[in-house]
Each structure stands twice: as C-alpha cells, then as structure tokens.
C-alpha cells in the first residue's frame, strides 16, 4: 500500500526514533511510505483547553499537508494526536476533501490490526514488556476493551499485533488502564496530581519486573520516562513501533 506518514510535532521534534521505527517497519512490510511536508500540530493542546480559535490555523495547516496527497492510508504512531486530528479536521473543515483525509487516518496499531496485518515476524525479541494502555487509544479509538466495560466480547488489538513476536512476554501493570496523568497541559496546570498519577503508574510498570514499558502514545511515554528517571526505576520506555521494527 501507499502510506503517508502523519508524524505529530512532539514525535518529530522530541522522539524522532519513534517516527524512524514507524517508517522502517512499514517499509519492511513492503509498503511505499511518504512523508508529506508542512505537518505541524493537530491542535490538541489548544482544543483540549477549550481554545478552538487558537487551534484553527495549525489544524488547517496539518490538514492541508494531506489534502490531495496520493495515498491509501495516513498512518500515525500516536493515538491521542490521531484522535484530535480526526475531531479537529472535522470541526474546522466540512469539505469532501477534508472527509477524504479523515477517512484515511489510522493509528499505527489500528492500521497493523485492521487494515494490513503482519503475516510473519522475522526475528524474536527476547524481552518482558509491560503494556501502557493509554486512555485515548483505548476509550476513543477502540484499540482494546476498557476495563470499565463488561461483557464477554473483549478484544485487545495491541496484544493481537505484538502477540506473534517470538520471545516477547507481555504483562500488564496493576490498574491496567488507569490514566498515567499526562493529559497535555494538565501535566503542568495540575502538576502535583499529574506527577502523583505518573509516579503510581511508573511504579506499577516497574513492579511487573518488565524490561520495557511499551505503548502506542508517545506523549504518555515521554511523561512516564520523566517519572521513571526521576525515581530511578529499573525500566525504560519503548514505543510499539520500536518493538515491531526490531522483530521484522
């Protein structure tokens, strides 16, 4: 397939290794990958603060970067930004052209599970990983059944994608899908509560004895990384793209 990468500003500027792993793994899977120019921010820091006027320019700039781009799918390695992009594109542009962009948007796990599943992994990854089941991916993108929801029909796309990697042991922290406390500007506006949530989450991950905290949302991972290093916990953060790329 022909894939356009949507690399959110945080990943572009602060976690390029996540974008490189995403690009590389998609290429290894035989896809043709392009990176359209002119991408900035999805507008989430502003819209999550209620400031829609302030979000409009950057959202439309991002949307324009994808309008008319010849591709089958637009893939993003950040669930929260992907959700915000979808909602904000819809908010600020009701055109057919915008709708075409929106209908091609996929979060990486979602893409690898629903659209183009990985047939086989090439290499084992011998590691125990503790999954960071970030809120927006689970409760807004349906990457897994949230723990609040009852019933027998349960799914977990993240585990379904990673589960076939030989040598990989997947575990979960206590209070599996409780928020890590990042929450965008919440991390600074409500520093004390955000930090306490982050500390609890980092400790829960470390308590599993896993080598890596692995997640699909870079912003949560950045926050957890800061908490882990502050508390000198024996665990590191990795994005799912990095684990998958290592296995291909």
């Amino acid at each position: 397939m022909k894939i356009a990468l949507f690399i959110p500003c945080l990943v572009n500027q602060m976690m390029p290794e996540v974008a490189i792993a995403t690009l590389t793994l998609l290429e290894k899977l035989g896809h043709q990958v392009i990176f359209p120019k002119g991408q900035t921010c999805c507008g989430q820091p502003m819209t999550n603060s209620g400031c829609f006027d302030e979000a409009k320019n950057t959202t439309l700039k991002l949307l324009n970067a994808f309008k008319g781009v010849d591709c089958d799918a637009i893939v993003c390695p950040a669930a929260s930004c992907l959700v915000a992009a979808k909602e904000n594109f819809h908010e600020f542009d009701g055109s057919q052209e915008a709708q075409e962009v929106i209908s091609k948007l996929y979060e990486l796990t979602e893409f690898l599970h629903d659209i183009a599943p990985i047939k086989a992994f090439a290499r084992p990854v011998a590691a125990k990983i503790s999954m960071q089941m970030s809120c927006h991916g689970i409760r807004m993108l349906n990457l897994a059944t949230p723990t609040e929801q009852m019933g027998k029909q349960r799914f977990n796309k993240v585990e379904a994608v990673l589960g076939n990697i030989a040598g990989l042991e997947i575990v979960y922290p206590a209070r599996i899908d409780e928020c890590c406390g990042f929450g965008g500007t919440f991390a600074v506006d409500e520093g004390a509560v955000s930090a306490k949530m982050g500390k609890d989450k980092a400790q829960a991950h470390a308590a599993t004895g896993a080598k890596y905290v692995v997640g699909f949302d870079p912003s949560c991972l950045l926050h957890l990384d800061g908490m882990i290093r502050r508390q000198k916990l024996p665990i590191e953060t990795r994005h799912i793209a990095q684990i998958i790329n290592d296995a291909l």
Binding site: S49, C135, R139, P146, C179, G181, F186, D189, E190, M197
Partner: peptide, 12 residues
C-alpha cells in the same frame, strides 16, 4: 473543568 485528563474512564 481542567481538573481532568479527559481519560474517559468515568464515561465508561
């Protein structure tokens, strides 16, 4: 309204 990370657990 900002005493919230918009995690969505309450809604579920």
């Amino acid at each position: 309204p900002w005493a919230c990370t918009l995690c969505g657990s309450c809604t579920y």
